[in-house]
Amino acid sequence: MPEFYMPAETEAHERIFMAFPSGGYTLGDTEEEAEAARTTWSQVAKAITRFTPVTMVVDPSAEADARRHLGDGVDYVIQELDDAWMRDIGPTFVRTKGNSLAAVNWNFNGWGAQSWASWEKDQLIAGHLAQLTGLAELRAGITNEGGGIHVDGEGTILATRSVQLDPGRNPGATEAQIEEEFSRLLGTSKVIWLDRGLSRDNEEFGTRGHVDIVACFAAPGVVLYHDQQNPQHPDFLISREVRERLEASTDAQGRKLTLIPVPAPSVLRDEEGWVDYSYINHLVTNGGVIACAFDDPNDQQAATILADAYPGREVLSVDARELFARGGGIHCITQQLPRA
């Protein structure tokens, strides 16, 4: 057994960590935009609390706004923040041989030292949460984010070359070196490499291709993937590439994968260009699935697919358009602490 391993996200959770939006492009340029961000983050938190306690990390400047939106419905940690994407700035929690927990610090650097990002405060959040939870902090030898990986809990991990081999994160790194670090920290023995993420996520204000908007494990051997069915959208070709790669892959146990396509929303563009709206970017927690909705004709079909993929869990959909307008989804703003 490896010294550390990352449990599947479908395992029981003690709590979910989030961060409250307090500045920068996430908050926006106007009070109206800021309030839209605060409201959407809060709606996600309220949906999660139906199933799992939420701890909200809040910059001191935003405490009044957070309490106005969330009241006593969450626990608060007051800590300086640059941004609010907890999946990426927070630690990845893993189990040890003795079945205790530890916190992996991925050395967050603003999604590959992007010119528009700031991370002086956010790069400390993983360490702060390790201290808060009383867990050992494991410092990674690579730069990564929680949105850049997805595991099945049985030794298999999904990742993209565009993120893990990004010169802004891991200059000169090889696939073998990345795989070795995943093995050391996450207990994985098989990486299924996808070349890239969705088109918009590879543009200037994206992550350079996080996997958690493209594909995820619903169970060992079962993968949900983003299926853009409209050939006009550039993600049509990416969906095909992803499907072909997954069809040709086996997991760490040697199984062929069962693939479940999740149709993309029917909307193709917003005022910024091609959208990367995706139902893949959901949170599974205890008895629930917190799903993205887009006021789209495909919302209900996606919710039904997720309900079938996660039997026995209630699917709650939250309008995620304000999240995606800022560069992510529900999975991106949440991070699970497995139950001890």
Rank of each mutant, 00 (worst) to 15 (best):
residue 3 E to F: 08
residue 3 E to G: 01
residue 5 Y to M: 01
residue 8 A to V: 02
residue 11 E to W: 13
residue 26 T to C: 02
residue 27 L to A: 14
residue 27 L to Q: 08
residue 28 G to I: 02
residue 31 E to R: 15
residue 37 A to K: 13
residue 39 T to M: 05
residue 48 I to E: 00
residue 54 V to A: 00
residue 55 T to M: 03
residue 55 T to K: 09
residue 56 M to C: 09
residue 58 V to N: 03
residue 59 D to S: 14
residue 61 S to D: 14
residue 64 A to T: 12
residue 66 A to T: 10
residue 69 H to A: 13
residue 75 D to K: 03
residue 76 Y to F: 15
residue 76 Y to R: 03
residue 78 I to S: 06
residue 81 L to N: 04
residue 81 L to Y: 09
residue 84 A to C: 03
residue 84 A to S: 07
residue 89 I to A: 03
residue 95 R to A: 09
residue 96 T to R: 11
residue 102 A to H: 01
residue 103 A to K: 04
residue 110 G to T: 03
residue 112 G to M: 08
residue 120 E to M: 11
residue 120 E to G: 05
residue 120 E to S: 07
residue 121 K to H: 08
residue 133 T to E: 03
residue 141 G to M: 07
residue 141 G to D: 14
residue 142 I to V: 12
residue 143 T to D: 04
residue 149 I to W: 01
residue 150 H to F: 04
residue 153 G to N: 13
residue 154 E to A: 05
residue 155 G to Q: 01
residue 158 L to F: 01
residue 169 R to C: 05
residue 171 P to Y: 11
residue 172 G to I: 08
residue 174 T to H: 06
residue 176 A to K: 12
residue 176 A to I: 08
residue 181 E to Y: 11
residue 182 F to K: 02
residue 182 F to N: 01
residue 184 R to L: 03
residue 187 G to F: 00
residue 190 K to W: 10
residue 191 V to E: 10
residue 192 I to A: 00
residue 193 W to Q: 11
residue 194 L to R: 04
residue 203 E to R: 12
residue 205 F to M: 04
residue 206 G to T: 03
residue 207 T to D: 00
residue 207 T to E: 00
residue 208 R to F: 15
residue 208 R to S: 11
residue 210 H to M: 02
residue 212 D to L: 03
residue 213 I to K: 07
residue 225 Y to P: 06
residue 227 D to K: 06
residue 228 Q to P: 12
residue 229 Q to P: 02
residue 229 Q to W: 14
residue 230 N to D: 15
residue 231 P to C: 05
residue 233 H to C: 13
residue 234 P to V: 12
residue 238 I to A: 12
residue 243 R to E: 14
residue 243 R to P: 15
residue 243 R to C: 10
residue 245 R to W: 08
residue 248 A to H: 13
residue 253 Q to R: 10
residue 256 K to A: 11
residue 259 L to K: 12
residue 261 P to K: 06
residue 262 V to Q: 10
residue 263 P to S: 15
residue 263 P to K: 11
residue 268 L to E: 05
residue 273 G to M: 06
residue 276 D to T: 13
residue 276 D to G: 05
residue 281 N to L: 06
residue 284 V to Y: 08
residue 302 A to N: 13
residue 303 A to C: 15
residue 312 G to F: 01
residue 313 R to L: 07
residue 314 E to R: 13
residue 316 L to D: 06
residue 317 S to I: 04
residue 319 D to V: 04
residue 320 A to W: 10
residue 323 L to Q: 10
residue 324 F to Y: 15
residue 327 G to H: 06
residue 327 G to M: 06
residue 327 G to Q: 01
residue 327 G to T: 11
residue 328 G to C: 08
residue 329 G to K: 14
residue 330 I to N: 14
residue 333 I to W: 00
residue 337 L to H: 06
residue 337 L to T: 04
